[in-house]
């Protein structure tokens, strides 16, 4: 049985010009694998991730024909059930640790909060939090545990964020552009840590990114989104066999290290893609 199945997911926001649909009928299933979702900004990839966690920001509304996590129908879940799922069985790493960590709370306390919320005693929570900091390859866990978010570099902050989201060993992790705010050199490091932990713990990962090449090297399967719809789904290894003109266009635009392309290829959008 698959870990997560999504059918015909739609996210709608009311606007003055009437409802605006930002996710328009997304369907996919996820096992204990790494699924990449790529798309440009505004394509609905982040909204898809948040809708799965039931965190569509107000006044948006998410509907689906089927939204099932490990046999639980998420569409029927009440606030209490959501709280017991979030943080314990499913969680999400967000883009920029500068904003996603509470600035006035020490990192360790925020880490422990994940466990304490779900009933772990204090002393054990502290022990596991420190172990988790070590697992994300932080050299001085005690110091980082006591530190405030602004005292950490971007890379350290994002590792702390990953630690916070994995400390309770969830089954599903959504990583929403987890490396976009980091330096290129640190991106690879953080990705390796994420990759290792996901593989070790055998969890399902949804990796949201706008970086096609990164996603294809990191994930097993890729969904390509455009204007709120999945336009193509393929195995990461088969990326060069992409059929959809949008994916092909994107692939053509990737710079090649050998070969001088002039003029630089551009993406010609077709109205038909949004239909």
């Amino acid at each position: 049985m698959s870990l997560l199945s999504v059918e015909n997911l739609r996210v709608t926001y009311p606007t003055r010009q009437g409802p605006a649909e930002v996710v328009r009928g997304v369907s996919f299933t996820l096992g204990r694998e790494r699924l990449g979702i790529v798309g440009e900004s505004g394509s609905g990839k982040s909204q898809t991730g948040r809708a799965i966690l039931g965190l569509t920001p107000k006044p948006g509304v998410a509907t689906a024909d089927r939204l099932e996590f490990d046999g639980i129908d998420l569409r029927q879940a009440d606030a209490r059930q959501w709280r017991s799922l979030r943080g314990r069985r499913m969680s999400m790493v967000m883009q920029d640790p500068k904003f996603s960590l509470n600035p006035v709370m020490p990192v360790g306390k925020q880490l422990m909060e994940t466990l304490r919320t779900h009933g772990t005693p204090r002393s054990e929570a502290k022990k596991r939090a420190l172990e988790m900091l070590e697992a994300v390859q932080i050299r001085d866990p005690e110091r980082v545990f006591r530190a405030y978010p602004h005292e950490l570099s971007g890379g350290m902050g994002q590792r702390a964020m990953i630690a916070m989201m994995l400390v309770s060993a969830p089954d599903l992790l959504i990583a929403d552009e987890p490396t976009s705010a980091l330096d290129v050199t640190i991106q690879i490091e953080v990705l390796r840590i994420l990759d290792k932990l996901v593989a070790e713990r055998g969890m399902g990962l949804i990796f949201i990114s706008h970086d096609l090449r990164l996603v294809s090297s990191f994930c097993d399967r890729v969904l390509v989104m455009y204007a709120g719809q999945v336009v193509e789904e393929l195995r990461a290894a088969d990326l060069h066999n992409a059929r959809h003109p949008y994916t092909q266009g994107l692939l053509n635009c990737l710079p090649k290290i050998d070969g001088d392309q002039r003029p630089l290829p551009t993406l010609n959008r077709d109205e038909a893609w949004t239909k």
Partner: peptide, 17 residues
């Protein structure tokens, strides 16, 4: 409206907290 509030929600922290 800050991101860290979303983080707390993702962790399953109750709304009053």
């Amino acid at each position: 409206a800050q991101e860290y509030v979303t983080t707390a929600r993702v962790k399953g922290v109750p709304e009053w907290r």
